[in-house]
Design a protein around this nucleic acid. Structure first.
Lengths: 190, 190
DNA sequence: GTCTATAGTAGGATAGAC
DNA sequence: GTCTATCCTACTATAGAC
């Protein structure tokens, strides 16, 4: 990881470099520990906000806010580097996956709350959808790092998708039943 | 970048380490050049397949295939590391963004072809949607590196979203006009 | 627990022979 | 254009004083 070393970490903490190894054994172990602790803290900081969400678009608004905040804190680059490093490192991969899962769980519970009774929920795998949303979010965060304006458009498009789902949820019983049947047929014929 | 150095690159190419600097000036410059060339080649290799796509689900199938192939070639980790490295490096960022844009353009042209005349297309920003799809795809690729099974579910969820859009597209003229009005109203009231 | 000092390693980059 | 040889830097990790 470029710019992340026992030395830079220790300097940021105002302590000696050797302490990294005394307390954590290795830089990687420190990173996995930090990743877990930090994510737990961030998820906790946002859980009240997630709980207040009452529509898909509000969920996206929280996501937007989160993205800006994380970027200002410089956490996006860290997440990216961790994910990248984790690609070829099963041990680091496990702890990054566990950290991501904290976000996924939060999002899944919101989706479950919002979409219960929706025609979409009857055929959708909400766990998978939460994972997809989280992954998309990570992707857009990374994208924002290389094309800020483009990432705004991407977020806007997600919002339009959310509108689509909400509108479908808002249909009257007749069109809704028709839609339901079509969705079921379409999914089944795969 | 872990494991990527002038020495390892030169070794893989069966040449001397000093040549990296002779031909490219620096490792970073080599990387940006390789990123651009490689992406161009991959996009070209898949463009025929993109052209044959006639539904959103087929588009996702191409994506799935692409993901497996890229992972087997070890390109996912490279993309991830490039994106991560690009977060704090404007120059590298520009070339990674340009490479990503090649995929985005391809996807946007498919979306434009598939969704023309759809109620969704009338309100959707297809450029933004293409970016969102690409970003989501990158996110899922990275996610697959730390949780293979979870990423399958995420892809499945995207497919269900695609079904939703397709089903809406397939509605009769009456329900469709109603839906259209609702979408327009929902988008306008933002 | 925290420090200094240091061994050992990997990598970026250049000079100069061929 | 390609090689060898080399310098310099930054890093991980450990040993041992305090």
């Amino acid at each position: 990881m470029k710019g992340v070393s026992a030395r830079t970490i220790a300097a940021a903490a105002g302590v000696n470099q050797a302490l990294v190894f005394y307390h954590f054994g290795s830089v990687d172990d420190l990173l996995t520990a930090a990743c877990t602790m930090h994510t737990r803290a961030r998820v906790a900081a946002y859980s009240a906000e997630f709980a207040r969400v009452t529509s898909l678009r509000q969920l996206l608004d929280v996501g937007r806010k989160l993205q800006v905040a994380e970027r200002e804190l410089g956490n996006v680059s860290i997440l990216a580097q961790l994910l990248a490093a984790a690609q070829g490192d099963p041990k680091l991969g496990a702890s990054v996956a566990a950290a991501l899962q904290l976000w996924v769980d939060e999002i899944e519970s919101v989706l479950r709350r919002l979409l219960t009774g929706s025609p979409f929920a009857e055929v959708a795998d909400l766990g998978g959808l939460a994972k997809a949303v989280s992954a998309a979010f990570v992707g857009i965060e990374l994208y924002a790092g290389v094309d800020a304006e483009g990432s705004q458009h991407a977020m806007g498009a997600l919002e339009q998708l959310a509108v689509l789902v909400e509108v479908v949820d808002d249909l009257g019983p007749i069109s809704r039943r028709a839609l339901n049947a079509k969705i079921n047929r379409a999914v089944r014929t795969r």
